[in-house]
Computed example of a mutant assay.
Amino acid sequence: MAALEKPVLKDEVVMTKALVRTAERLDFRQSDLGRMLGLSGASVSRMVHGQYELNNHRPEWDTALTLIRLYRSLSSILGGQEDLIRRWMHTPNTDLGGVPADIIRRGAAGLFTVGLYLDGIRGRI
């Protein structure tokens, strides 16, 4: 009897699903995600419903990867506790000069700023 083969998922499918889950866990709305990625609301809606995949040759890919890395950094710092992760995202941070979620919502520059901050903290642990 032949072993069942698992289907191989494309990188674009995996990244898109990971991004959608990450945005949900961080309490970002579809409009927030669209602003961060530079995508229309319709494209983000299709992405959430599995009808649009991120393109690994466009800037949206790097931005999505950064958001996922940010979440993973924060999760490792806070022991994967979802309630603490959400609280951190929505609490003013004096080092960052604002609420991390608001800084991230401003666009890619804010996302990269918060990501670098978390990388620095994680490096000290």
Rank of each mutant, 00 (worst) to 15 (best):
50 G>A: 11
54 L>D: 03
97 G>N: 10
28 F>K: 07
74 L>G: 02
35 R>A: 13
119 D>A: 05
73 S>T: 04
32 D>Y: 10
82 E>D: 14
112 F>L: 12
85 I>P: 05
74 L>T: 00
96 L>V: 01
47 M>H: 11
7 P>A: 14
76 S>Y: 10
39 L>A: 04
78 L>D: 05
18 A>G: 02
109 A>V: 04
63 T>E: 06
77 I>S: 00
103 I>M: 05
26 L>C: 04
41 G>M: 10
108 A>W: 03
122 R>E: 11
99 V>I: 15
31 S>K: 14
39 L>I: 11
98 G>Y: 09
76 S>P: 08
32 D>F: 09
1 M>P: 15
71 Y>N: 06
78 L>G: 02
83 D>C: 10
39 L>S: 11
12 E>Y: 06
42 A>K: 15
12 E>R: 10
106 R>L: 12
18 A>H: 09
52 Y>V: 06
86 R>L: 08
57 H>W: 09
102 D>I: 03
17 K>H: 15
112 F>N: 07
69 R>S: 06
74 L>I: 01
3 A>W: 07
68 I>D: 01
125 I>Y: 14
20 V>F: 08
113 T>C: 01
67 L>R: 03
122 R>N: 04
93 N>K: 02
76 S>W: 05
25 R>S: 13
56 N>H: 15
15 M>A: 10
95 D>N: 07
3 A>R: 13
76 S>C: 00
102 D>T: 07
90 H>A: 13
102 D>L: 14
120 G>N: 12
116 L>M: 09
60 E>P: 07
80 G>Y: 09
111 L>P: 00
6 K>Y: 02
90 H>C: 08
81 Q>C: 03
50 G>M: 14
102 D>W: 05
67 L>K: 01
65 L>N: 06
40 S>I: 13
88 W>D: 00
43 S>W: 13
12 E>A: 09
51 Q>C: 12
26 L>T: 01
70 L>M: 06
57 H>F: 12
116 L>D: 13
39 L>K: 14
110 G>L: 06
2 A>N: 08
82 E>F: 00
40 S>H: 14
14 V>M: 09
95 D>L: 03
41 G>A: 15
35 R>L: 12
118 L>H: 02
36 M>H: 02
37 L>D: 08
12 E>V: 02
51 Q>W: 10
45 S>A: 11
105 R>Y: 05
33 L>K: 00
95 D>Q: 09
